[in-house]
């Protein structure tokens, strides 16, 4: 039974498709075109340079290669360092919250709260807390005789700080997704395991973890994407330092495009970063698939 005219489906789709063409398809193509030019939108001349912007990224002596690959390195280090924590810590939180106890709703809300504050509030707050000289964290550690740590000025502490702040900020978000996954695991599976004499740990290994697999894949993917997009924390807390060690790829792209007004180069960088990300995503998918079978 068909209760609609030929044009109806297209009419329903039209508003979205208009946006989609204008802000997704168009820009994706236009971005490629830009990346073949030396594009400064305020200068009349936008010389066509062919693949030069891409070649430059692989020429160690070019002006863009070093910042870009340093940015890739910073993003890479941050991603590798943060994703395991952002996948594991929330799982722990979710297991904790999955138990029935008085005030559970309250604590769940508290653990999620940092996420709604947004990166700006969090960045400002931790920039101060982590200050080497007058930050409360160093003062607190000093009580235990730990000497001043340059959380924002020394490596590897700057990365430790950025990862920790990101965990503080987003662990609640991932935990909530896990929590929903946990509630989808049938209680009978636990009961059966218990009858078999499985310990709490064995139940976790053999019931909880397999039951959470789809949710975990989802979390790994969104966390990977979020980490690869890291920007605000580094901008506000370490200002990309010490040196340029925490200047992430996205910071390099925006700096190239919006501060140096080399938008063609910036577009080339973003395509290359996207390709790298796609490769990583494929590898991750492949790994998870294999583990499944």
């Amino acid at each position: 039974m068909r209760g609609y005219g030929r044009a109806t489906p297209y009419l329903f789709l039209a508003p979205y498709l208009a946006l989609f063409l204008l802000f997704v398809v168009g820009p994706a193509v236009f971005g490629l075109w830009m990346s073949l030019h030396d594009w400064d939108f305020q200068l009349p001349g936008k010389p066509f340079v062919g693949l030069q912007n891409y070649k430059d990224l692989f020429d160690p002596l070019s002006a863009t290669a070093e910042p870009f690959w340093h940015g890739m390195r910073a993003t890479g280090i941050f991603t590798v360092a943060s994703v395991p924590f952002l996948v594991a810590v929330p799982l722990g939180l979710a297991v904790l919250l999955n138990r029935k106890f008085p005030g559970r709703t309250f604590f769940r809300a508290v653990y999620f709260a940092p996420y709604v504050l947004g990166v700006a509030v969090i960045g400002l707050m931790f920039r101060y807390i982590l200050d080497t000289t007058f930050g409360i964290l160093n003062a607190f550690l000093g009580v235990f005789g730990i000497s001043e740590i340059g959380w924002t000025t020394e490596q590897p502490w700057a990365f430790v700080a950025l990862v920790a702040v990101t965990v503080w900020w987003t662990a609640g978000f991932n935990a909530i997704i896990y929590l929903a996954g946990l509630q989808d695991i049938p209680a009978e599976q636990y009961e059966a395991a218990e009858l078999d004499g499985a310990s709490t740990w064995q139940q976790f290994r053999h019931v909880t973890l397999p039951g959470l697999r789809p949710v975990t894949v989802f979390i790994v993917v969104i966390t990977l994407l979020a980490s690869a997009n890291m920007f605000g924390q580094a901008l506000l807390i370490t200002q990309g330092g010490p040196g340029d060690t925490t200047t992430t790829a996205l910071m390099v792209i925006t700096d190239t495009g919006f501060s140096q007004f080399r938008m063609g180069q910036a577009a080339a960088m973003s395509y290359l970063l996207a390709i790298c990300l796609a490769i990583v995503a494929l590898v991750v998918f492949r790994l998870m698939k294999e583990r499944k079978s």
């Binding site: 030396d38 001349g45 002596l61 070019s62 002006a63």
Partner: peptide, 11 residues
């Protein structure tokens, strides 16, 4: 390299 690119860009 930057100086060279800038000369081109700013004509």
């Amino acid at each position: 390299k930057i100086l060279e690119a800038n000369r081109k860009k700013y004509g």
